[in-house]
């Protein structure tokens, strides 16, 4: 059932080549930026100016030709790469279309696989509408909630630990979802270990239950009464945590001010909530925490 060939087959499917590039690029760019950031941190600790602030790096040059010709060369290299790619990798065709047979697995384009993976853990309305909306709104809000002037124009880890840490958490989470959706999800959207044969008949014991059922509450009970514990827990998660964080990290709260702190902590709680729900699903088969007639969380 396990073989390196199976793994290689999946990795070398023409569909999945972008994912391989993606993995390489994540590693490379993270390494480059951290390399520079740690270098600057060392310089700051020694009281020297950052690398970008060195006199010889302060000189200003014109966009044309200094920047544009670099971009031109890069675009030439990219074109050469794309030519090579399209010459030797054919379009990944599958069975002739048959309107009575759905392909298994049915996968979205690779850049949507993170969303598709989220659908495993959440109500379609939450995973497909609310969370992507909040991600977009949160990204737009970053300049307004992150007013820390440190790190402008230079790489630094020491000065922006929180911002970089939170961003990398979200970024790696998203990439991990895409990679999982591409490489580790096979027929029936089942989880397959690397190298495991993608067997369409694979059966996995997955009986998921709601939080209220965990508490032995009759599902027929009126929903408000049934979901009261869930509402309390979610309520506590979104109200008590901000207070606790503010209390134990007063400086953080005071730097941001009430409104910015509120928005930041809410976005942060949602971001953390995503993997928490995933872990709950994987460990105790939790289907939904809160079930209302309109949406489920």
């Amino acid at each position: 059932m396990y073989s390196f060939k199976n793994f290689l087959d999946i990795l070398t499917t023409p569909d999945n080549v972008p994912i391989l590039l993606l993995i390489a690029m994540i590693v490379a760019y993270t390494w480059i930026s951290f390399h520079k950031a740690f270098d600057n941190d060392k310089r700051l600790a020694q009281g020297r100016p950052v690398w970008e602030g060195e006199p010889h790096n302060q000189e200003k040059v014109h966009t044309w030709p200094h920047l544009l010709n670099i971009e031109f060369i890069v675009s030439i290299i990219a074109m050469a790469g794309l030519t090579l790619w399209s010459t030797f990798l054919n379009a990944p065709l599958e069975d002739p279309a048959n309107n009575s047979v759905t392909p298994n697995p049915s996968k979205a384009p690779w850049y949507f696989l993170g969303l598709q993976e989220m659908l495993v853990y959440f109500d379609p309305w939450i995973a497909g509408v609310v969370l992507p909306g909040i991600i977009v709104v949160g990204l737009i809000a970053i300049p307004y909630i992150d007013t820390n002037p440190k790190g402008n124009g230079y790489y630094s880890w020491r000065d922006r630990r929180f911002a970089i840490g939170v961003f990398l958490f979200g970024w790696f989470l998203w990439m991990a979802l895409i990679i999982e959706g591409t490489i580790l999800r096979g027929p029936g959207w089942n989880f397959f270990m690397p190298g495991e044969y993608w067997d369409v008949h694979k059966q996995v014991a997955l009986v998921n239950i709601n939080f209220s059922e965990l508490l032995n509450i009759d599902p027929k009970t009126f929903w408000l009464a049934r979901e009261l514990p869930a509402i309390i827990i979610l309520g506590l998660y979104f109200t008590i945590t901000p207070f606790l964080v503010a209390k134990f990290n007063k400086k953080f709260y005071e730097d941001l001010g009430l409104v910015r702190y509120g928005v930041t902590i809410m976005l942060l709680l949602l971001l953390v909530g995503l993997p928490v729900k995933m872990i709950l699903r994987l460990t105790i088969n939790l289907k939904y925490i809160l079930v209302t007639p309109w949406f489920n969380i």
Binding site: I73, I76, I77, G81, T83, L84, S86, T87
Partner: peptide, 17 residues
Amino acid sequence: RAFVISSMLLFVMTVLA
């Protein structure tokens, strides 16, 4: 030099295609 090399690369790739 980078320009020359990359252009040659593109040329070779085009010829190859």
